[in-house]
Simulated assay, not measured.
Amino acid sequence: MEKLPANVGWLWLKEGFALFRKQPAEMSTLFLAYLFLMFAIGIVPLLGQVLPIILIPVFSMAFMQACVNVERGKKVYPNLLLTGFRRPAFVKLLQLGVLYLLAAVMAIAASALIDGGTFWQVMSGGQALDPDTVRDPRFSLAMLVAALAYTPAAMAFWYAAPLIMWQDMGVGKAAFYSFFAVKRNGRAFLVFGLAWILIGVLLPVIVSNLIGLLFGKATVVMLVLLPLSIVMTVVMYCSFYPTYTHIFGKPQQPAIGQQ
C-alpha cells in the first residue's frame, strides 16, 4: 500500500476525465440507467427509502467495472449494472450496504444534539427545507457535525466494495484496509476533495452567469446546467477508479459486460 504525494489527488481527477472522454455516451447512459433504476426502487413501499442506500456498494461496482472496460478498450453497456449482483461478492456487498445505512443513521442522529432533530427531520422527509431552516446557524452546525461523525465511516467504505469484489476480502478486512489506505493518503484525498468542491461550485456558477448574460432566460440556464451536472457526476464516478488503482493496483478480473 503506497503513500502517495498530495498532487496525486489532482491526477485522479484528470484520469477520471480521461476515462470519461473515451466513452462519454456509454458512461452517461450507464449513469442514466442507474438513476432510472434507483427511481424505480425508490417507489417501492417501505423499502424504497432504505434500499437505495443499502445497494450503493452493489451498484458502485458497475461504475468501477465500467472504468476497467474503458481502460481495456471494451465497450460499456447498461448490463454492467448487474456486476455487483454476482456471488459470492453480492452478499458481502449487501452487508456493507447495511453498514452504510447504520453509519448514516448514527451520524444524522448525532446532529440532533445540536439542532434538536431538525436536520434529522429534513433528511427523513418529515420536514420541508424552508429558507428559515437554512438560515438557522444551528442547522448548518448540525450538518457539519453529521459530516464529521460520518467521516471515519466514509474512510472505511471508500475502497471496501472493490476490495470485496476484486480481492475477495471479507467486509471487516476490506473496511480496515480502506480506512488506513485513506488515512495514509490523506493529503492526496484532501487535494482531490478540494478540486471537486471548486469544480462543483465554480463551474456551474460561471456557466450559469455566461448563459444568463447571453440569453437572459432561466429555462435556458437549466437546460445547460442539467446535462453539465450529469457529465460532472459521471466524471466524478470515473475518478473513483484511479484512486483505487494508484494504491491497490489494477484489478486482474477480466473485462465483463461485453456484447
Score class of each variant (00 low, 15 high):
Met106Gly: 04
Ile108Val: 15
Ile108Asp: 01
Ile108Cys: 05
Ala109Trp: 07
Ala109Ser: 14
Ala110Leu: 11
Ser111Gly: 11
Ser111Arg: 02
Ala112Cys: 03
Leu113Pro: 10
Ile114Ser: 08
Ile114Arg: 04
Gly116Asn: 11
Gly116Tyr: 07
Gly116Phe: 10
Gly117Ser: 12
Gly117Tyr: 05
Thr118Met: 09
Phe119Cys: 00
Phe119Leu: 13
Phe119Arg: 01
Phe119Tyr: 07
Trp120Ser: 07
Trp120Pro: 00
Gln121Ile: 08
Val122Trp: 03
Val122Ile: 12
Val122Lys: 00
Val122His: 00
Ser124Cys: 02
Ser124His: 08
Ser124Ala: 04
Ser124Lys: 14
Ser124Phe: 06
Gly125Pro: 15
Gly125Trp: 05
Ala128Val: 13
Ala128Lys: 11
Asp130Leu: 13
Asp130Val: 11
Asp130Arg: 11
Asp132Phe: 14
Asp132His: 09
Thr133Leu: 15
Val134Met: 11
Val134His: 07
Asp136Phe: 06
Pro137Arg: 03
Arg138Gln: 15
Arg138Thr: 10
Arg138Glu: 15
Arg138Pro: 10
Phe139Glu: 07
Ser140Pro: 15
Ser140Cys: 09
Ser140Val: 15
Leu141Asn: 04
Ala142Cys: 05
Leu144Ala: 13
Val145Asn: 05
Val145Trp: 01
Val145Ile: 15
Ala146Phe: 02
Ala147Gly: 13
Ala147Pro: 06
Ala147Trp: 04
Leu148His: 02
Leu148Phe: 07
Leu148Ser: 10
Leu148Glu: 12
Ala149Thr: 06
Ala149Cys: 12
Ala149Tyr: 00
Tyr150Gly: 01
Tyr150Ala: 13
Tyr150His: 13
Thr151Arg: 06
Pro152Ser: 08
Ala153Trp: 05
Ala153Tyr: 03
Ala154Ile: 09
Ala154Glu: 09
Met155Ser: 12
Ala156Ser: 10
Ala156Met: 11
Phe157Met: 13
Phe157Thr: 03
Phe157Gly: 03
Trp158Met: 11
Tyr159Val: 09
Tyr159Met: 12
Ala160Gln: 01
Pro162Leu: 09
Pro162Gln: 03
Leu163Glu: 08
Leu163Cys: 14
Ile164Asp: 07
Ile164Arg: 04
Met165Val: 06
Trp166Ser: 00
Trp166Ala: 03
Gln167Trp: 05
Gln167Ile: 06
Asp168Leu: 14
Met169Cys: 13
Met169Ala: 07
Val171Tyr: 09
Val171Ser: 08
Gly172Ala: 14
Gly172Val: 10
Gly172Tyr: 04
Lys173Gly: 10
Ala174Ser: 06
Ala174Ile: 04
Ala174Asp: 12
Ala175Phe: 14
Phe176Gly: 09
Phe176Leu: 07
Tyr177Ser: 10
Ser178Cys: 10
Ser178Met: 07
Phe179Glu: 08
Phe180Arg: 04
Val182Trp: 06
Lys183Pro: 14
Lys183Ser: 11
Lys183Ala: 07
Arg184Thr: 05
Asn185Gly: 06
Asn185His: 02
Asn185Asp: 10
Gly186Pro: 13
Gly186Ala: 10
Gly186Tyr: 05
Arg187Leu: 14
Arg187Val: 01
Ala188Ser: 09
Val191Ser: 07
Phe192Tyr: 15
Gly193Asn: 13
Gly193Gln: 12
Gly193His: 13
Leu194Ser: 00
Ala195Pro: 03
Ala195Asn: 07
Trp196Leu: 12
Trp196Ala: 03
Ile197Asn: 12
Ile197Ala: 09
Ile197Asp: 08
Ile197Cys: 11
Ile197Met: 13
Ile199Pro: 00
Ile199His: 00
Gly200Arg: 00
Gly200Val: 03
Gly200His: 00
